[in-house]
Amino acid sequence: MKSYIPHYRLETPRSLGEALQRLASEPGVWKPFAGGTDLMVLLEAGKLPQRRFLNVWNLPELRGIIATRTHVSLGALTTYSEIRRNAIVEQEFPLLSRAASETGSVATQNRGTIGGNIANASPAADTPPALLVYDAELELISAHGTRRVAFHGFWRGYKQLDLRNDELIARVHLPRGRQNWRQFYRKVGTRRAQAISKVCFAGAAQMDARRIADLRISLGSVAPVVLRATATENILRGLTPTPALVHAAQEALGREIAPIDDIRSTARYRLRVAQNLLAEFCESLAA
């Protein structure tokens, strides 16, 4: 344990209202603590400068998966286990379901939350590519009310969020109606479980016979943030994938991502894999 435990405070507010009040009255002093699967790892490694935390784990308002006519909404505290057990998510948002089942292992999935995954803002996080593909929106809540923002653009840069320090992520909203899109997900992390992504690829396309009418592509671990590959999408949108078109899209993807060398992998490998998975995605559309 590389942190001095007596320094840290973790308090449990009785209600959402009290939690929001604390966040508002002492701005920047308190930070939410949900499942702890990121925070406790940082604590162990001595990398947790923040010292005061509010335990939000038990706040019912931030839990539960709700389906309305237009949206499916997930409370920020929804765990990976809850996501993968949910039948609607499995049917309509299979990429999210896959991401949840390929995250960590059972114990991590029982504690890790979607809100925490978003707020932690790791470029290697595995739900954000799925969320970007589904045009997710976030509902943010504070003592002053709620606001709703597109998830695309919520991460402004490495670990930089469009989130005020008195706000919590309350819910994640996913627009329905994409069941007929072709969907593709692949996480590349060397081993089959407990793996941090070296590249994570999520794609979905609406096909009009062999033509790609519309599509979304998103990748993790290839840039300072999880990326929506809009330039690549633009090349493919409206066209039928031919080898030449796929090649052009791969080139565009190569320009759009900015992978790096780190202790887990190399920039060269990440680039190649991203491009190869793009090709695999395009092939899957032709099939």
């Binding site: 490694a45 292992s105 060397t190 081993r191 089959r192 479980a193 202790i263």
Partner: peptide, 16 residues
């Protein structure tokens, strides 16, 4: 050893 954590030094799991 720069990757001296079980997260970054990859040993086989039951799935591997």
């Amino acid at each position: 050893m720069a990757n001296g954590q079980m997260t970054n030094y990859i040993m086989p799991t039951s799935m591997d």
